[in-house]
């Protein structure tokens, strides 16, 4: 059974010029223990579609779907209370800006302990011990001392490790990572991606990785969804996608990669964009 199954997800925003469809009939399936990459250029609706699953969109958003099931449970018909038992515990999410995702006024130790107390029902002492274990597991050096740090006292990479520690604190079945390394340097990016894949494997979590970077897709995903203007262009296992991309948009994206340039000029996606009416 799919861990998360979504059919015909649509999100539209009320704007001053009328409704704007940011996500236009997307289907998503992710199996337990699978790494699914959602790739696309900015504005293609990657974040909005996953924020819709998390219930984190503002009131101006209208979300509809024919099916939204987590682990066989229908998320569309369940009560708010039931939903909250899933979101933030069984499904957690991390974001692009790790420093901005943390509360600047509290120590990182306080923030992870709070999640453990509220979402995992732990006592203060148990939460503290578990928090130190988690910091250690995500590769934060001197975890007990680091608990006392405020977010601004840590580097971007360390803040993302803290966010990951918080996200796995409840042993989620599914972790959604939205451009988790886009704001980080490549050497730090590699460490964070290795950490995510390692945690994914040892805990058997599903991992949805949102990215705009084809290199990241190539080095992490089992399966890939290519998204453009709120729609799914192509879905394939990672090897097929790179070896034999089916959709012209995927082919255009891959040919725009500077690392694959053969001649003096880079092919561009503009022909496809013209066709698609942008």
């Amino acid at each position: 059974m799919a861990l998360l199954k979504i059919r015909n997800l649509t999100v539209s925003f009320a704007t001053s010029t009328g409704p704007f469809k940011a996500v236009d009939g997307i289907d998503v399936d992710i199996e337990p223990s699978e790494v699914l990459a959602i790739v696309g250029e900015s504005g293609s609706g990657k974040s909005v579609s996953m924020l819709a699953v998390m219930g984190l969109l503002p009131d101006t958003a209208t979300v509809t779907a024919d099916v939204m099931e987590f682990d066989g449970r229908d998320m569309l018909s369940m009560s708010g209370a039931e939903r909250r038992r899933i979101i933030g515990r069984e499904i957690t999410m991390i974001f692009q800006e790790p420093i901005a995702s943390l509360n600047p006024s509290f120590t990182v130790g306080f923030q992870i302990e709070e999640v453990l107390r509220i979402n995992a029902g732990m006592s203060k002492a148990a939460a503290r011990a578990r928090a130190i274990e988690l910091f250690d597991a995500v590769g934060i050096p001197e975890p007990a001392e680091k608990m006392r740090s405020y977010p601004h006292q840590l580097s971007g990479g360390q803040c993302q490790r803290v966010m990951i520690a918080i996200a796995i604190a409840t042993n989620p079945r599914l972790l959604i990572a939205d451009e988790p390394t886009t704001a980080l340097d490549v050497t730090i990016q590699k460490q964070i991606l290795d950490l995510l894949l390692d945690l994914q494997e040892t805990h058997g979590m599903g991992l949805i990785l949102i990215t705009h970077d084809m290199g990241v897709v190539a080095e992490t995903a089992d399966r890939v969804v290519v998204q453009f203007k709120g729609q799914k262009m192509e879905e394939a296992d990672v090897l097929s996608l790179f070896e034999a991309p089916q959709h012209p948009y995927t082919r255009a994206l891959l040919s725009a990669l500077p690392e694959l340039a053969t001649g003096d000029r880079l092919p561009t996606v503009s022909d496809y964009f013209a066709e698609a009416g942008q």
Partner: peptide, 10 residues
């Protein structure tokens, strides 16, 4: 550290 899209590596 730089991710690449090399088919053989995939």
């Amino acid at each position: 550290a730089t991710p690449i899209t090399d088919i053989e590596a995939i």
